[in-house]
Amino acid sequence: MEWVRFTAAAVFLLFATVMECIAVFGVYKFKFVMNRMHSAAIGDTLALLLGAAGLMLLKGSRWYSFKLGLIVIMLWMTSAISSHVIMRMEYSIDEKKVKEETS
């Protein structure tokens, strides 16, 4: 049982690392703000959730898991909302004429 838990936690943490690597790669690969923000959001949401889940499994304590869950909820709220505001700012400045292309 202990081994199963450890393996599951390791898999979660590994996936979190992979996702974080993809996010970093995308941030450096793309040139346009919105593309970069999309790839950065992968690290902020999915990688964070996977990492937190892996740590929860590894530690196993209920109080610890509760605190990690709170951290995930807080970061999902705040970082997504700040990205949203920056994105709308970019859309209203519209340097690349995205509005004309999409409409």
Partner: peptide, 17 residues
């Protein structure tokens, strides 16, 4: 001038946070 005004998403989350 350029910032989003009265953004419902930001307002809801600010109400929580």
């Amino acid at each position: 001038q350029l910032e989003p005004k009265n953004d419902i998403i930001v307002q809801k989350v600010a109400g929580f946070l």
